[in-house]
Structures are given as structure tokens and as C-alpha cells.
Design a protein around this nucleic acid. Structure first.
Length: 509
RNA sequence: GAUCUCGUAGCUCAGCUGGUUAGAGCAUUUGACUUUUAAUCAAAGGGUCAUGGGUUCGAGUCCCAUCGAGAUCACCA
């Protein structure tokens, strides 16, 4: 890629394309090809006695060719995997004209081409299930060489397509040549399906809410900004869908959820893509303690559906999603991992504890932030097994209801797994007066220069003034959860087309 | 945003302390071969060594800058 000229191999393939046309063969035929089976179905079903498979038709991409004079072996790959085919000159060319074999098959077909074959299944002398081809058709010519991975007798891989940049930019190639990539995405989709079924079966409604929003809210983050021409107004790409889903609870739904693409104009890393997916769920007449049980059950089910067991291998660790998970208050977690009990401490005492524990502090940090920093530095990295952390400082949670027992805290939990947050939930704040005060505190932060503070959403406040029932809400980072469930080290491995810098130049046609 | 590492043929990589026409495997091209399997055998082509400067008699190799990538860290999911 990114070359200013075509490589010899590309030129050779374009010449082959023209020669095919000269022979009267359409390299891109339009008519349907009557596929009757797949590589997987043949592998699973073939039996010389009971199921001899005398007539099969399958299609796929040519992945390897071994020519031996008048006979050849090749492999084609369809969506289910690879199948070896055997091609004999005098069988695909029964008459005098041997050009289909000598010219087309041997010279003009390349690795990467889509072909269709019809024939019967047999076992080779070495015992491999193979399709003995009686007719063969080119279905689509490939003009770009495909980097097929080959492993030699010593186990050395040749041609591995492993440059991360190329893999992400050209995901279509990655998917063709690295089968495990496909697995991860299939698992991700399955994960979403399990969650959707779990929530739908309880009667919660899947909904869609605006991505283009006049005000961004529901999270602390920097937004993307855009402009609507007809309305001549600024719109923001959503950073969260929380405030819209709560409006729907106000409107009378008992439970609503959405798998939402969110957009945040922040840094990129192996844990952050500018657009990412969050599932948010709001359920009326529940609280965050109910939500803990709900989430635990749902995720245990996801793990079992994907892996056949609640235990999931992630890197060199085994993560066990079997219920019940450990539950700590934030203070308990800090005590557990630092030995310090910070209960009842004031800001100065906390600052001193933070310094003693080598946590970076700066003078702008308030009580809540200091607690969060201590937790983030000393407890979170050690939480590998799924763990609920409850009782967050009120300053960090402007949309959560104040704790029913403890001053200065809110009813909130996060789930930490493999040292990362995989869920964040509250008993939702439904007191419109309190909510307005929290927004105003955020406004004050914004005026002090905090670029990630929330803006006041008057329409949302109005909805709360009409009355919202007590409600539990949760947000689940789908990409992060998918990383764990697919044992992926990088978010780019669970997003088909992760954001990349623009490519410098692509060959112009 | 900060630090570190990397950028050599289509792909994966080697090129030691700077020194003659830049190497390997796979892929490609030509030829041989009717059950092979990284098929094999014989021959051939292919690289302005990321880009731009500099040091030097001489740079893929040293220095600087730029671009791109990866890793670690900070903030957010």
C-alpha cells in the first residue's frame, strides 16, 4: 500500500485480467453461482460409506495452489474455513482444448481469486478430505496480492500479516488471512446478542436516542462539535445517552436500553477509540443494589454463552465470572490494598495520606478527587476478578442520588475487572432541585476552566420536574467488555475499523 | 500530551564497531512433474534502505528535524 506505482505482482495480475477477457472469460461474472455446501459442512458430514457427497458445489477464495503437471491441488477458503480441491487437466478439459487448465487454471488464476467448483468428495492418499473438481469457474479476479501466512516444517511463519497499522487499515485483508480475528468479532456480536436477549426477555425496551444533540450531557468528557446547515446551529455528537433514556423513564417506560455509539474528543490508546459503544439500561422502581444483582447475572451468562464456562482466559490470568462477585465500598477497597482507613478524614488528612502513598496530588484536587486518585493508584490495578466498588464521593457523580445513609457519598457502583472499569451504575438522581444544584456546581467547575464539566440541560431538568420514578441506571463499556471476553490486548482488536490517522496516499486509479 | 523503541524487496526479517555492484525465506515470472500438502527441482526478475538536511574520502549503518507506527505513562469508557 501507499506506493506511487504498482508492483510487478499487481501488473502481472492486471495482464492476467486482460488475457482472461481475451479468452472470452468474464473475470467478474454477475450471475448467481449455485453453491450447495460449505467447507465446514463437507468436513463435518463426509463419510465414504454413509454420506459420500457425490455432487457438491462450493465457492471461495483461492488460498494456495500446488501444480504437478497435469494435476494440481489447491485450497479454497469460504466463510467457514478452508477446503482442499483436486484439479485434473483431462477432467476439467475433456476435449482437445486444454486451455482451461493449462492457461486459465495454471497461469491466469492467482491466490486471492474467488472461484466456484463442482465435483465429488474423496480422501487423498494422505487422508485429507478433498473435492475432486469436474468443473471450475472464476467468480471474481483479485488484483492485489494477498499475504497468506505459511508455516514451514520448523514452525516458522512466513508472510504473516501482522503489522498492526496495516491490519487495522486493511481489516478486510486481516479477516481473510488471520482467522482468529474473525473469531473475536463473532464473539463480540454474540456477547451483544446475549445481553440484548437477557434484557428483552425481562420486558425492557430497546430504543434509539439522538446522536446529534444540541447539548451534550450524561458524562464528563470533551465532545465533537458539528454544524447543521438548515437550522444553522451547532450540534454535538453524543458523549452519552443517559439524559435521553431518563426522559423516556419520565415518559412512562419501565425499562429502556440502548447500545449506543458515543463520541469523545480525547486521546487514543489501546483502551480508547474516539467512537465507542456503551450499553445503557434504566429500570424504574429499582436502585443500584438491585442493579448489582442484575448485572452480575447478565455477565455471568455472557461468559458461559461465549466460553461454555464462567471462567475466561485473559492474558496470563483466568477471570471467573461465577456469581457472587466480591463487593467493596471504595473505603474498604482502599483499606484492603493500602492498609489505611480513610473513613471520616478531611481534605488535608486525605492529601497527606495520598502523599504518603506516593499518589500524585495537586492543589486543585478536592476530597472526592483525592479519594478517587488513591483508589485508582493502589486498588484498581489489583482488581483482576470482577469486583463491585460502591459508595463514591458525591463530587464525582453529578447524576447519582445521594446515599441514603452516608453523608458526602452517592449510591453508585462500578465494576472493576482486569484492572479496568466494565460498568458504572447509579441509583439515579430524580430530585429536580438537587439535580439543578449539581449542574450548577458543574457550571462553576467549567468557569474555573474544567473543559470536561457538564452543562446545564434545562429540558432534562424540566423532565425531572414532571417527575421521574426512582430508577436504577447502568452503563456498560461494550468494547472493554469485549476485550476481556475475547482475550484481546487492544481495543482495536474488537473494533472492525478503529480510527486511524489519514493514509498519506493511495494509488489513484 | 510526555518518555522509550522502531520504519531495509509484495510479506516477514538479517545487515557486527560506517568501507567494494544491499542479503535470506516466502511470494512473483519461465520451464519440468497426473494424489500433493511450507509439494519438489532448475533458472530469472524485483529495493532512490520512511522523508529532508548534516558529519565523513565514504552512511542502510553516526547526528538533527519531519512524518508514520508500536509500547509505557497521564485523563476519559
Amino acid at each position: 500500500m501507499m506506493q506511487g506505482h504498482r508492483s510487478d505482482q499487481e501488473l502481472v495480475r492486471r495482464e492476467a485480467l486482460q488475457k482472461l477477457r481475451d479468452l472470452g472469460i468474464d473475470p467478474y461474472p454477475g450471475e448467481a453461482y449455485p453453491v450447495t455446501t460449505t467447507a465446514q459442512a463437507i468436513r463435518d458430514g463426509y463419510d465414504a460409506e454413509s454420506n459420500p457427497m457425490q455432487d457438491v458445489t462450493l465457492a471461495g477464495r483461492l488460498m494456495s495452489v500446488r501444480v504437478m503437471g497435469k494435476a494440481s491441488f489447491a485450497e479454497i477458503q469460504d466463510s467457514t474455513g478452508r477446503m482442499q480441491i483436486y484439479v485434473n487437466r483431462d477432467e476439467i478439459c475433456p476435449g482437445e482444448d486444454k486451455s482451461l487448465y493449462n492457461e486459465v487454471f495454471k497461469k491466469l488464476l492467482d491466490i486471492g481469486d474467488f472461484i466456484g467448483v463442482r465435483g465429488h468428495v474423496f480422501l487423498t492418499q494422505t487422508g485429507e478430505i478433498t473435492v475432486h473438481v469436474v468443473s471450475l469457474k472464476l467468480l471474481a479476479k483479485s488484483l492485489h496480492p494477498l499475504p497468506i501466512v505459511k508455516v514451514d516444517a520448523e514452525g516458522h511463519a512466513h508472510d504473516a500479516f501482522k503489522d498492526p497499522e496495516l491490519r487495522y487499515r486493511q481489516r478486510y485483508v486481516d479477516l481473510v488471512v488471520n482467522p482468529e480475528v474473525k473469531d473475536a468479532f463473532v464473539k463480540r456480536t454474540r456477547m451483544v446478542q446475549v445481553m440484548r436477549e437477557f434484557m428483552s426477555s425481562r420486558g425492557y425496551l430497546e430504543v434509539e436516542t439522538p446522536i446529534l444533540q444540541p447539548l451534550y450531557g450524561g458524562a464528563l468528557a470533551k465532545p465533537f462539535k458539528t454544524h447543521h446547515n438548515t437550522l444553522d446551529m451547532t450540534l454535538f455528537l453524543r458523549i452519552a445517552n443517559e439524559l435521553y433514556l431518563k426522559r423516556l423513564i419520565v415518559g412512562g417506560f419501565d425499562g429502556v436500553f440502548e447500545f449506543a455509539k458515543n463520541f469523545r474528543n480525547e486521546g487514543m490508546s489501546r483502551f480508547h477509540n474516539p467512537e465507542f459503544t456503551v450499553m445503557e439500561l434504566y429500570v424504574a422502581y429499582k436502585d443500584c443494589f438491585w442493579m448489582m444483582d442484575f448485572y452480575e447475572e447478565m455477565i455471568e451468562k455472557v461468559a458461559i454463552e461465549l466460553h461454555g464456562s464462567a471462567q475466561v482466559q485473559v492474558g496470563d490470568k483466568v477471570i471467573d465470572f461465577k456469581r457472587p462477585w466480591k463487593r467493596y465500598t471504595m473505603f474498604e477497597a482502599i483499606r484492603e490494598y493500602t492498609g489505611v482507613d480513610i473513613t471520616g478524614m478531611d481534605e488535608e488528612q486525605l492529601r497527606q495520606v495520598a502523599r504518603d502513598l506516593h499518589v500524585e496530588v495537586d492543589p486543585t484536587m478536592g476530597k472526592g478527587k483525592l479519594i478517587d486518585e488513591i483508589f485508582g493508584t493502589h486498588a484498581e490495578p489489583k482488581l483482576i476478578q470482577p469486583t463491585f466498588i460502591t459508595d463514591y464521593p458525591v463530587e464525582m457523580s453529578p447524576l447519582a442520588k445521594k446515599h441514603r445513609e452516608h453523608e458526602g457519598l452517592v449510591e453508585r457502583f462500578e465494576v472493576i475487572c482486569n484492572a479496568k472499569e466494565i460498568a458504572n451504575a447509579f441509583t439515579e438522581l430524580n430530585d429536580p432541585i438537587d439535580q439543578r444544584e449539581r449542574f450548577e456546581e458543574q457550571l462553576a467547575l467549567g468557569k474555573r476552566g474544567d473543559t470536561e464539566s457538564m452543562v446545564v440541560d434545562e429540558d432534562f431538568l424540566r423532565s425531572l420536574e414532571y417527575g421521574m420514578p426512582p430508577t436504577a441506571g447502568i452503563g456498560v463499556g461494550i468494547d472493554r467488555l469485549a476485550m476481556i471476553m475475547t482475550n484481546s490486548a487492544s481495543i482495536q482488536d474488537v473494533i472492525f475499523f478503529p480510527q486511524m490517522r489519514p493514509e498519506k496516499k493511495i494509488v489513484a486509479e
